[in-house]
Amino acid sequence: MTDRSRIGHTTEPTTHAVDGWRVKLFCQAIGETDPVFCDPAAARRAGHAACPVPPTFLKALESEHQSGAVLMALLDVPMTGVLHAEQRFEFEVPVHVGDTVEISRTVADIFDKRAGAMTFIVVDSHFRVAGQAVAKARQTIVVRNSVPAAA
């Protein structure tokens, strides 16, 4: 049973360096071939101070702050029935390789649908660089309560 007392729970911020090798691996994984993301010279030619990160890379960085498994353990939810339902990003300031990003997450809401067959968990993420908000994200997770927990 999802622990509703965790609504409002906010993690202690942690900081994460944006590593060029990690960004390169991420680009490879998503088929992103634009050298602007991996080659500092190409980034400078395009007018960037350093390689920018692909839009959804912040979610990968977020997993270092708090993985899905850690979040589900916090909420006392078995992973077996969990699916990602929705995701939203708002990008305010570009994040680049070499930045150090501070991340914190807040459990914004937990609610049921279909007479308790599904529980929705809404989690907000805040991304800051040098004290300035650079992006925010909202993840909605669905727990299918009918799926038996793995042994």
Binding site: I30, F37, Q87
Partner: peptide, 27 residues
């Protein structure tokens, strides 16, 4: 998130790398 990342490529392929200001998906 892999699907969403590929949706992001629709924009990084056509616009400058930092042009995207909001991206939301429902799976």
């Amino acid at each position: 998130m892999r699907t969403m990342a590929c949706l992001g490529r629709l924009f990084t392929d056509r616009f400058v790398a930092t042009a995207l200001r909001m991206l939301e998906t429902r799976f």
